[in-house]
Design a protein around this nucleic acid. Structure first.
Lengths: 232, 232
DNA sequence: TATAAACTAGGACATATGTCCTAATGGCAA
DNA sequence: TTGCCATTAGGACATATGTCCTAGTTTATA
């Protein structure tokens, strides 16, 4: 992790996502850029949070490690995000891990400072409320779906969601948006083995074809039949 | 649902849980008591939230209904709780249903009014942030456990958590804290059938005995072995 | 007290999903 | 180019869990 104090860049990032207009200038002066390399942890669970971040660049994953060695991928982070809002007023250790997948840039400030500032900055507090509400809503949805729909439906829904109009005629090609199938399996709350099994069944049913690292949807109707109504 | 305008009782409830000191008197004057009977819905998902509540009495359940007809029980509510914090600043429809299990009393006010008031009441905003943070943390934990541990472990953990020192010598008796096994199965994110199967296996292993509607733990060691470390 | 409704118990079976392996393949670095 | 590592592919098997039923018990209520 590297720390930069280039205040122009801090300003630029905070402005880009509308954070700057909420924060007092005096506070912005105290903020620094925190740059994390792929694989580095931005937040570790069970530790006391010390930094609060405005997440402005790169991709990372939020996950929990359970004591049986399994992990649960909660979601991916892409800018803009807020890191540290969950714990800021409830004084508890971090619940999740946040690990950089690409090079990630955050604008950071100590938890005490942001807490102090928030106490008299209602716009900041409202921003926190909004962020927390959205996090809760999306996590609620994701985990309900993971718990109550079989992988077949979740995968169909996922493919339908990330597919883009392809070049080759009617065929719709979907790049997987994750680095590899293991990561996709994690994202979908399943195992690599079961994911490949399910992909194979899609192939057998003529729903998709797959070559190399690309899945092409060849029967959108069937796919949507399986994906139907997962996300109400 | 019945509405009462008895301002003394409003005051009493808000004071009891420390809400009164956060709210301006003018606002308290506008609040009413909303009393729900068992089975009635306090909040319905997909509807636009109109009321914001301080939940001050009774037991209810928070659940999601999915489009395949299944439901996911997220948690139970017992006072004090805040209802409507998730949606207040993010302008989205309710994500969950909230259904009264007993007679439930809430102190309510319209969403517009609380939103307007919150904009200039930072203590209220901080309360909302705290409530949201705790909700997110607890739901995160619950759903990770539900997704990654088999029912055997979750049930063991649950029994260990709710058991109380019993009257009969070493035996520890646990009243189930839910109305019936169906409800407990829902709470644990499983089916009634699988719950009874798991209870039977506990009986066969000599971990518990069960008569009528009471489960008695007779081998705490074994139970804790199964429950171990679910909640880190 | 009698009778219905709610609840408990568990068999039989199907399915979703995990674990463990082994082989094949592709991409990248020496 | 060669060889290694990451990734993909899939067999074999075990387990967790769901669905559908039917029967026995308890509880509530008329």
């Amino acid at each position: 992790m590297e720390i930069e104090t280039n205040i122009q860049r801090v300003q630029k990032y905070l402005t880009q996502y509308g954070f700057a207009q909420i924060l007092e200038d005096e506070m912005i002066q105290q903020m620094k850029l925190y740059v994390f390399n792929p694989g580095e942890h931005i937040v570790r669970s069970h530790e006391k949070p010390e930094m609060f971040y405005f997440y402005v660049k790169g991709k990372s994953k939020v996950y929990q490690l359970l004591d049986n060695g399994k992990s649960l991928l909660c979601r991916f982070y892409n800018p803009p995000e807020i890191v540290g809002d969950v714990e800021i007023f409830s004084d508890m250790p971090n619940i999740c891990n946040l690990q950089a997948l690409t090079r990630v840039t955050c604008v950071g400030i100590s938890v005490e400072k942001i807490r102090k500032a928030a106490e008299s900055n209602n716009r900041l507090l409202m921003l926190l409320c909004r962020s927390l509400g959205l996090k809760l809503a999306s996590f609620n949805m994701i985990s309900a779906v993971n718990q109550k729909f079989p992988l077949e439906n979740r995968l169909a829904s996922y493919l339908a969601a990330v597919s883009e109009p392809g070049k080759k005629g009617e065929v719709i090609v979907s790049e997987i948006h994750t680095n590899n199938l293991t990561e996709l399996a994690d994202l979908l709350g399943s195992s690599y083995r079961h994911l490949t099994r399910t992909i194979k069944s899609f192939k057998d049913k003529g729903i998709v074809t797959k070559n190399n690292r690309e899945i092409a949807i060849i029967d959108k109707k069937q796919l949507q039949g399986l994906a139907k109504d997962i996300y109400i």
